[in-house]
Structure formats: C-alpha cells, structure tokens
Amino acid sequence: MNRRTVVKAIAASGALIGLGAMMPRVAVAAWNKDAFNAKSQADALNALYGSAAEASADVMLKAPDIAENGAVVPVSVESKLANIESMAIFVEQNPTPLAAEFGIPAGTAADVSTRVRMGKTTNVTAVVKAGGKTYSATKEVKVTIGGCGG
C-alpha cells in the first residue's frame, strides 16, 4: 500500500461518514428477520418489540367481521396515543403471523390502512408502540374462503 491509496481510502471513508450523517433519521429498524419469520405471534411480538403488549382502548383496529375473501382483508389501525413510533399488524393463525410493521415518524398521523391475507378465521391484532410501551387491540375476523392459495 502506498501513500496515494491510503489518502484515497481516507477520503472515501470521510465521504461515507458524511453521507451517513445526512441520511434522514430512520424510525423503524431494518426488516426484522426473526420477527417476520417467527411462526407464533408471541415469538414475533417478542422479536419485534421485546415485550408483550397491553390491551388498550386507545388502539383502534378496523377490520371486517366477516371477510368473504381471505386474500384481501382490509385492515386499518388508528391510535390517539402520544409519541407513537411504530405500529404492527398480526394475523394469529397465519404461517408467519407478523403481516406488516409501519414506522410513524413525527408529523405523520397514526392512521394506516392496508390489506392483508388470512389463511382462516382468526384474530387480527394491531400493536402500537408509543413512548417505549406497547399497546394492542384484537378483533376476530371470520374468513369464508382462505387466502393462502388453498
């Protein structure tokens, strides 16, 4: 290694550090492999937030009572809690219960809608992390036709 390459390497690493500092602050961690691949809801919840969630009336979960088609079940999560960092949707009896995790930066409303697949009739749980604590709401959704390809 000669002087030239060393100088270049230092310059390059400096540029990288600068880029890292300029990147916007990320609210959620990268795709959490353990949580998304967990086979049970308890494991997934533990891997994602590190604790069990406390049922709370401040988490509003909107989902149909009966979903005719399990492949497309509209689900909305809304919460009035302060300091919300992230929200997650679990479908208990799916092969991998954690369906999605949303990062909610300051300034974004804690009201997110999406559509999930459900294999069979089961509980859908919304979990909200706010101020370091986790809160949840659960609702049973009856599925007439499963959405996992049957």
């Binding site: 916007p24 492949a71 369906a99 949303f102 974004t108 559509r115 959405g147």
Partner: peptide, 25 residues
C-alpha cells in the same frame, strides 16, 4: 428529504399491496 412513512411488509400482505396514510405538510 424527510421520511414520512415506512413499512416493513411480509408475505401476509395481499397481492397488489395497498397502503394509506396521512402526514403533515
């Protein structure tokens, strides 16, 4: 330049994923 929404999705999200949210600004 500011992230307003992030989602980590799994296979349990329906085909042709739909997402809706609201942000200030």
């Amino acid at each position: 330049g500011k992230v307003v929404f992030e989602a980590n999705l799994n296979t349990a999200i329906s085909k042709n994923p739909y997402l809706a949210f609201t942000f200030e600004g």
